[in-house]
Design a protein around this nucleic acid. Sequence first.
DNA 1: TTGTATGCGTTATCAA
DNA 2: TTGATAACGCATACAA
Lengths: 340, 340
Amino acid sequence: MVTIAQVAAHAGVSVATVSRVLNGSDTVKPDTAKQVMHAIEELRYTPNLSARNLRRNESRVILVLAPNFSNPYYSRILAGIGDLSREKAYSVLICNTSGLTETAQSAMQMLSKHLADGAIMLGCPQSAEWVGEYVERYPVVLCCEYIPKLVDRCPIVSVDNYAAARQIVRYLRDLGHRRIAMIGAENAYASTQNRWEGYRDELKESGLACNPDWYEKADADYSFASGRRAALRLLSATPRPTAIFAISDILALSAISVAQELGLNVPRDLTVVGFDDVDYTTMFHPFLTSVRQPCYEMGQKSLSLLLSKIQGCCVPLSGIHHSSFELIERESSAPPIQME
Amino acid sequence: MVTIAQVAAHAGVSVATVSRVLNGSDTVKPDTAKQVMHAIEELRYTPNLSARNLRRNESRVILVLAPNFSNPYYSRILAGIGDLSREKAYSVLICNTSGLTETAQSAMQMLSKHLADGAIMLGCPQSAEWVGEYVERYPVVLCCEYIPKLVDRCPIVSVDNYAAARQIVRYLRDLGHRRIAMIGAENAYASTQNRWEGYRDELKESGLACNPDWYEKADADYSFASGRRAALRLLSATPRPTAIFAISDILALSAISVAQELGLNVPRDLTVVGFDDVDYTTMFHPFLTSVRQPCYEMGQKSLSLLLSKIQGCCVPLSGIHHSSFELIERESSAPPIQME
DNA sequence: TTGTATGCGTTATCAA
DNA sequence: TTGATAACGCATACAA
């Protein structure tokens, strides 16, 4: 291993001078700088970041936690974080929590251990109030989800799930649907709850029934199989809903698959709307009507806010920063076949 | 920030003793240890890893590079690496290279900068001979792909792509197909080349034609859109192939989508076989016949080999470690409608 | 413009 | 069983 001292010796200067050229100080004579650069290249010197970080008391590492990174939704956000972080000379440390509090907590210790300067939490359940301890002491940004008690205490990046759900229901109502069902999930996400509230409120204000038989939950992991079970229950209800709003595209696809097996044509006999607008919504017919979330940009915005906090930005950054969403109409939605 | 010195003061012992209990030394009197533990909890002390890493000359961080992490194939491997790394008390630093050499190279510098103890490279093109410099000096494992010149110099984890391709062609031949096409990709991956060679050789040994009109390339990124273009060219050939082997599931799905638009029924009029067996192969009919790769396990095996190298394992680990694959027959393959 | 010297928080060697 | 202390490699205050 080659150290700064060896470079100094090789260039015939002091370590301080080498450190200066390394850090772009302007108080170094061009000639000396050139010699030092030459020595650096000749010895193929690269600074030891453990030492530098210890001295500077920073790590230039960002911690990103998510329940998983296999979901294209999270991996797209991760891409946004990763690309911007490289540009800003930060590295990204990831932790796949599998939804486990203990795993998340031990990962967050990277902050107190000085191996990360800040953290971005994706998919944090509302119940995770323990996060408050970290939010108080370290730079933390929540992305996608939020924890009610922490809304005023840290930046949050998310779409307005309540508004999006209302817009979907309004869209379905305007198409002529009156029996509108929803597939939610067994989890503690704010997004799940907010979408349900938007669904319920818009239904109510439109004078439409909010029939408990028309609301079913998939498993916490939004799995295709659990979506199928939920859809099957929904499509067995009497009277049967004419439209289904699913809180994720996978769940929407599972509803389409069940409908088809039941001999129902989508969208003629059943309208299905998804959420997230991931890639495979346009790989098969019917192409899925869905709400697009700007995942990549949300990742970038999260990192951007986090870096502001790390750099000690003085303007208050806390609260929900809403990203724009867009209802994209495709082939899986249409007016109901018979108006009542 | 609370340091080991403060803990020592609070517990009325020396820093050496605190360090001892921190590192599980057995030469500490149980009573003293208890006092120290108490002080640690009281002050909520966590060790500064920059300092520890500097002193120990390690980081307990693994670097993982991939062209992207949005592809479910890579994200599944990442999950395998992540889960095992947590178990082994390592952290995972990721770099999304976007296929750019420069980005990959700068990420690999994390090794010389002492911010990572080893690296796992996913999706490395055969042309990346610069990797040799790192393989010589640091623990590196290649996963999925390999670089011919480095085969004897570092561990490689991959399925036997050549054998898999031959098995697919044999399967299609045994079904009765004689006009077998292939969709490859415009990239420098060993997997792409090996699958092509397997396809070609098995065709030849079976006495079947290896018609250049029946081999088309999608873009380097295996995009659905480029797969459609390749499939369209293939299905415009005269005579038209009765079976298509695609080197990824996405490409296979794109072929099915084009076939359907051309009024062809899969598998009646056209057989399609994919590769990788990602989740969405069973979300739509026809369910896709594909070759399963044990991605999660491949991630774990890669990390396991890497840790052996890091720990200075003396048995030679270099060479290709083949993971098993499995051809899974589903609904997209069948005998051709008319034998010739 | 450059060099000397100190300290960042930890581990580990050596004495006691 | 414990304590004092010297590194680890770097950045920087202060001197020159």
